[in-house]
Design a protein around this nucleic acid. Structure first.
Ligand code: MN
Ligand code: MN
Ligand code: ZN
Ligand code: ZN
Lengths: 159, 159
DNA sequence: AACCTAATTAGCAAGTCGTGCGAATAAGAA
DNA sequence: TTCTTATTCGCACGACTTGCTAATTAGGTT
């Protein structure tokens, strides 16, 4: 995603208006590597701008996605996560706390899909599933007790 | 996923009952490589057993997942897809029609995630995005016209 | 500085997907 | 056949996201 300033220019050049809500969201998303949900972003935004609506957050995120400024990440778990990082990168998910971390992956070019000659491939996504060090420690302390997870950070893991 | 007969045994040995609903779902899922949604499976089941409830379909699918007989696949697009194929494999998604196809991938062992030394990785998933030959042809005929897609097969694609 | 108008916002209704709950039903053991 | 308890089904409800629209506002025009 471009900087808030660059986005301002991009918006104007497209006949879009520069509202305080949008500017705030530009700031909050720029360089954001947390892969937040719309709700999470709404919470942050609300702190600085009480009254901003969740609807506007969704609207702006969709808008930015249409403009190619950010991507959606759907890895299960209910809510879509938003990612302003447009570099070629992939993700690791902690199955315990649900956090998503960027990860650069070497070797993706060498991946050879077999049996789909009839497809024209445009993109490849790699998702690692594991446990982060923090959760690993918690497990050591209370091996039996499942950690309390807020719905927002729960990861619905396959298999 | 095991055969309906094997599942029957597994169920009984776990004190679970063998209902006609479950048996039908075992059949419909066994060897199913369509990665159906719960709704899609419900539709198929309803054809053979009018009156079966969507609730029961969800219940049975969750049950089978708990038993490790199938996996959930979440690649965006609204509904979770179910996969009875437990072999080590990956998926290709047609961004046009939303179909998901199994694909064996060579080279996954060589994938090197960089910068997540603090994670204990358990699993790696690879998803290819592209266009299937059928959709490719449709595009040739009507390049401008977007294909009509049923909600169930729509793929919500990131980026 | 006041004005105009299209774009935007906020809020609530509604849609989709999935789960909690409880009464009625049925599997399977006795 | 009887009994116990797992299961089914239907509906309410919850989480997430979008549709709709009246009120507001950005930003160009006079
Ligand atoms: Mn990312
Ligand atoms: Mn599969
Ligand atoms: Zn964690
Ligand atoms: Zn297709």
């Amino acid at each position: 995603m471009q900087t808030p300033t660059e986005l301002a220019a991009a918006y104007r050049s497209q006949g879009r208006k520069l509202t305080p809500q949008r500017q705030l969201l530009f700031q909050l998303m720029h360089g954001n590597d947390k892969h937040p949900t719309a709700e999470a972003l709404f919470a942050e935004a609300s702190a600085q701008m009480p009254g901003i609506s969740l609807r506007t957050v969704y609207q702006t995120l969709n808008e930015l996605a249409e403009m190619g400024e950010l991507q959606f990440i759907d890895i299960g778990g209910g809510a879509t996560r938003f990612d302003p990082n447009l570099d070629d990168h992939h993700h690791v998910v902690c199955v315990d706390c649900g956090q998503i971390r960027d990860v650069h992956v070497n070797g993706t070019a060498a991946l050879k899909p077999v049996g789909i000659e009839d497809f024209t491939i445009n993109e490849v996504g790699v998702v690692f599933q594991g446990v982060c060090s923090t959760c690993e420690k918690s497990r050591a302390k209370s091996p039996k007790t499942a950690q309390a997870k807020s719905p927002a950070q729960q990861a619905k893991v396959s298999k």
